[in-house]
């Protein structure tokens, strides 16, 4: 990837992180860690040109679909959709408020650009399987991206969906696992060990690509490879840091389901600009 483009995506990821912190602070609740860990992936998806989507025509039939199976990380999605122009950025301030188009978990009926309602973990990947089958039935030629949490891989339904996707040879389905290693009660390896994760997906019949989920060159080549893959679905395991970019949130379990206070937000924004890192 050329340096100019990489710089643009890096800048956009930073914008998304700022949006995430601002909206969570305003909301007073929500999920910081798992939103920040996916900022680079979402910057790439929506601003590299890889997705066939049009914010002015969010329902066009042959669009690529995004399903956030780890629905609690919706602040990163909302930020990307707002920056992309699906809705006015002022909505971000109303996250989680009564009457808002931005619900606590993604709601396809309320938010332009949200292709599937999710929030109960494990279900989104199955929905994406259905969308991938539907896309093939109508020869739409579109891709379905499902963002899955590594903690979410505790859910049995993820593996039911994984089995079905390989069975039906859904090569238009790309799962991106946000492997940040943390879930609500602690490190994933301590709460419920999912290792060896890559081998599990491989054993279920998927093509597996492991990358650094904060490295645009690696994201770019992985998604490029995934799109080229024929005959089976692809799982990109993105090794990430939960809370990425904010030094006091990085790899800290408590920031899974917590929003920053005003003071913490200021500190976090400074951290994004390279200040205060220990």
């Amino acid at each position: 990837m050329d340096e100019v483009r990489k710089k643009e995506l890096t800048e956009m990821a930073k914008k998304l992180r700022i949006d995430i912190l601002e909206m969570l602070c305003e909301a007073g609740s929500g999920h910081s860690g798992g939103s920040l860990s996916m900022a680079d992936v979402f910057s790439y998806l929506y601003f590299s040109g890889i997705l066939n989507v049009d914010p002015k025509n969010p329902d066009k039939k042959d669009r690529d679909r995004v399903v956030l199976s780890k629905g609690h990380a919706c602040p990163v999605w909302y930020a990307a959709l707002a920056e992309k122009g699906y809705f006015d950025k002022s909505h971000l301030k109303k996250l989680r408020k009564y009457g808002s188009i931005l619900q606590g978990h993604p709601d396809m009926r309320k938010t332009p650009g949200v292709d599937m309602t999710t929030g109960s973990l494990g279900q989104g990947l199955s929905c994406a399987v259905g969308m991938a089958i539907g896309a093939k039935l109508d020869n739409l030629g579109c891709k379905i991206f499902a963002i899955v949490g590594d903690g979410e891989c505790n859910e049995g339904q993820i593996w039911e969906a994984a089995m079905a996707a390989a069975h039906y040879k859904l090569d238009n389905l790309i799962a991106i696992v946000d492997k940040n290693g943390l879930q609500i009660d602690g490190f994933t390896k301590d709460v419920m060990n999912t290792e060896p994760l890559a081998e599990k997906w491989r054993a279920f019949g998927w093509e597996v690509i492991e990358i650094d989920g904060h490295n645009f060159d690696q994201i770019d080549s992985a998604i490029g490879r995934a799109i080229e893959t024929k005959g089976k679905p692809v799982c990109i395991i993105a090794h990430t840091t939960k809370g990425k970019g904010v030094y006091f949130m990085e790899n800290v379990c408590d920031w899974h389901g917590k929003a920053p206070s005003k003071e913490e937000k200021e500190k976090a924004l400074a951290s994004l600009c390279g200040e205060g890192a220990e």
């Binding site: 399903v67 292709d115 279900q123 259905g130 539907g134 039935l137 969906a161």
Partner: peptide, 10 residues
């Protein structure tokens, strides 16, 4: 959930 995904595709 697959059924939901199919319905979302029309």
């Amino acid at each position: 959930s697959v059924a939901a995904g199919l319905a979302a595709m029309g």
